[in-house]
Design a protein around this nucleic acid. Structure first.
Lengths: 246, 246
DNA sequence: CAGTGGTCTAGACCACCGA
DNA sequence: CGGTGGTCTAGACCACTGA
């Protein structure tokens, strides 16, 4: 007979698995041990392991592939859809796009950054990296973004650490720095394009653009990225789907 | 020994439950029979019923309340958060707002409406209702919307069928017409306010506003509402959360 | 207190995958 | 073919709810 427990067993197992992910015991794209082994490892029934894994599949941390195994989710690569990327062309299907780094520099954290990242503010040098990114498709820029990340998670980031290309920044975070963004919160505004944004997007000044202010979180709801994106919505729009087909 | 089945048993049970919902055997807010009874009714194990219910809970059709029962989800009432309503004030917490019907009229369906609603176009009279709605908080309008629904689902809709108030339109659809919207798809654009929108929202003409084009679906992905909302994002924004805390 | 959903077990057989 | 996750059973005890 087992003593009464404060938290359900399967949640403890789930947290153990998350611990292993945080420790990078299993890398993105790699399979976990099979369910029977995990059951032995944690001294629980296989159904309990399945409940734990089910939770992590629901929150997109793991993916199950029948006949193959359970894998650490990898943020999508070129071709397939980008996770958390909701900008699509108004007509025509989803198309590949190009990401280009315009600039990068170190910065001292301001009050807002200290708050969102929970930084200690006593250090001498810069606390943050700030990047300017441009996204384009078919040779035409459709969005620019300002990306801010704390230095302590992205040591030695520089231009070479952020190659241009067509994969998501989050893929880079994951592969080069072990930073997994598993949750984002975005605030959307319609604003007039600033002169620099208008220029980058080939818009008339004061033309409306969609401003998306995002904060990205990793495990345990720790904020690790703050970005603001400006999108021209003449040829593109932001897509939101809520609810699942019944 | 059971014969091989093409679809999993729990999915068949899930579809049976959906059937009952479509037939309104259980009304929104009402409890379903308990899990043991459902297991008897469908001749399956209780875990299979739980898997079926789990699916419907995941897609927000049902809600489980420990110690009480499993209920047909009811679109939220005043005070609590509205489902599918993602507009929140920039500062301060979520606040109650007022919905006001500005106008309503019958219309012949155009090509777009015929496509989205899959209408037969041979009838003589109007095929659609078109409503203009205004949303305000603290006496100040922050959004206006154009709502289009097919007549055949909303017979005898008129001004009295759409009282002003602070509950969601979807609550009305559900309670008065048995129409459950369980999924919405939205396209977001930043546009210049038209003169009528600017006037309604107390903006200067050509000021940027957020345009949200939504299609609402009921069971089996049948489209039942099309609406366009214009939101002023000086005092409000549109909130998107993706992913769950790990 | 009785009734509900929540958790958990220890099995079984199935469908899928790749060598 | 062996190994994986997917489905399913028939129970058990727990925690929560409301009368």
């Amino acid at each position: 007979m087992r003593a009464m427990r404060s938290t359900p067993l399967y949640k403890e197992v789930r947290d153990q698995i998350v611990q292993s992910l945080v420790r990078s015991e299993w890398q993105p794209g790699e399979p976990l041990p099979n369910e029977k082994e995990l059951a032995k490892r944690y001294f629980v029934a296989i159904s309990t392991v399945r409940a734990a894994i089910g939770d992590l599949v629901d929150s997109d941390v793991l993916v199950r592939k029948q006949g193959k195994g359970t894998f650490v989710n990898q943020h999508n690569f070129r071709g397939s859809r980008y996770r958390f990327f909701n900008v699509v062309p108004n007509r025509g299907s989803k198309e590949p796009f190009n990401r280009k780094l315009i600039s990068i520099r170190k910065e001292k954290a301001d009050a807002e950054a200290i708050r969102t990242f929970g930084l200690q503010t006593t250090r001498g040098g810069g606390d943050l990296y700030r990047m300017r990114i441009k996204l384009s498709a078919r040779g035409q820029a459709f969005a620019v973004a300002d990306v801010v990340v704390p230095i302590h998670l992205f040591k030695n980031l520089d231009v070479n650490g952020i190659p241009n290309g067509d994969e998501s920044l989050y893929t880079l975070y994951q592969q080069k720095y072990g930073v997994n963004i598993i949750r984002v919160v975005e605030q959307l505004y319609a604003v007039k394009a600033s002169s620099s944004v208008a220029k980058a997007l080939s818009l008339l000044p004061d033309e409306p653009v969609l401003e998306v202010r995002r904060i990205g979180y990793t495990f345990y709801d720790v904020a690790v990225e703050q970005r603001t994106t400006w999108i021209q919505t003449r040829d593109y729009h932001y897509l939101v789907t809520q609810g699942a087909p019944g």
